[in-house]
Every structure is written in structure tokens, then in C-alpha cells.
Computed example of a mutant assay.
Amino acid sequence: MPDEHVSILQSLGVALLALATVVWSFGLVRLLRRYRSGAALWGADDTLRGLPPQRQGGPHLEAVELTPAERDAFAVLVRRLNDGH
């Protein structure tokens, strides 16, 4: 029997907290069970079906031939940058 100094609202609050704890625990157990069974299925197939297939190698290399004037201009630019430091 509850103590005479405890109000009905306090007793109701404790009961609601206990009920919320039970409901939360039940939901957590269900969630963990579902996650565990999903994890077992996930490990069976390592591919991600929602993603497009990935390339095995990197992108192809691009090269541009410079004219002699462009090479000279680039050399001047490099010298200027080196002199500044």
C-alpha cells in the first residue's frame, strides 16, 4: 500500500515511467534482433546493389604537347615563382 504522503500524481508518474521503460526495452530488444538478423544476411553478399559498379583502375592520363613558346613561358613562370620564395 502506498505511503500516505505520496500523492496520486506521483504514484501515477512512477507507474507511467515504469511502463515507458518496459515499452522502450521491448522496442530495443526487437530492434537489436532485427539488426542482428539483417547483419547476418548483409555479410552473405558484400556487393552494394544500389550503387553503380566501380572502376578497378584510375582514370586515364591526359597529356598535352606544348609548343616551344609555351614551354619557354612556363619556364619563365617557374623561375619567377622560385625567385619569390
Rank of each mutant, 00 (worst) to 15 (best):
Pro2Trp: 07
His5Val: 02
Val6Cys: 06
Val6Thr: 15
Ser7Val: 03
Ser7Asp: 03
Ser7Cys: 07
Ile8Ser: 11
Ile8Trp: 05
Leu9Asp: 13
Leu12Asp: 07
Gly13Cys: 13
Val14Pro: 04
Ala15Met: 14
Leu16Phe: 15
Leu16Cys: 13
Leu17Thr: 08
Leu17Met: 10
Leu19Arg: 11
Thr21Asp: 09
Thr21Gly: 14
Thr21Met: 12
Val22Cys: 04
Val22Glu: 05
Val23Gly: 03
Trp24Leu: 09
Trp24Met: 05
Ser25Tyr: 09
Ser25Arg: 07
Phe26His: 07
Gly27Pro: 00
Leu28Asp: 01
Leu28Lys: 04
Val29Phe: 11
Val29Pro: 00
Val29Cys: 09
Val29Tyr: 12
Arg30Phe: 04
Arg30Tyr: 00
Leu32Thr: 04
Leu32Trp: 05
Leu32Ala: 02
Arg33Gln: 11
Arg33Lys: 15
Arg34Cys: 00
Tyr35Val: 06
Arg36Phe: 11
Ser37Phe: 02
Ser37Tyr: 01
Ala39Leu: 15
Ala39Gly: 09
Ala39Pro: 03
Ala40Gln: 13
Leu41Ile: 06
Leu41Asn: 10
Trp42Val: 03
Trp42Ala: 10
Trp42Asn: 03
Gly43Cys: 14
Gly43Pro: 06
Asp46Ala: 11
Asp46Gly: 03
Asp46His: 05
Thr47Val: 03
Leu48Met: 03
Leu51Gln: 10
Pro52Thr: 00
Pro52Arg: 07
Pro53Lys: 06
Pro53Trp: 04
Arg55Ser: 06
Arg55Met: 05
Arg55Ala: 10
Gln56Met: 00
Gln56Pro: 00
Gln56Asn: 00
Pro59Trp: 12
His60Ile: 02
Leu61Tyr: 01
Glu62Ala: 07
Glu62Leu: 08
Glu65Ser: 12
Glu65Met: 13
Glu65Asp: 13
Glu65Lys: 11
Glu65Gly: 06
Glu65Trp: 10
Glu70His: 08
Asp72Cys: 04
Asp72Phe: 14
Ala73Phe: 06
Ala75Phe: 08
Leu77Gly: 10
Leu77Asn: 10
Val78Gly: 00
Val78Arg: 06
Val78Leu: 12
Val78Pro: 00
Val78Ile: 10
Arg79Gly: 04
Arg79Cys: 05
Arg80Ile: 06
Leu81Met: 02
Leu81Asp: 00
Asn82Val: 09
Asp83Arg: 03
Gly84Glu: 13
Gly84Thr: 10
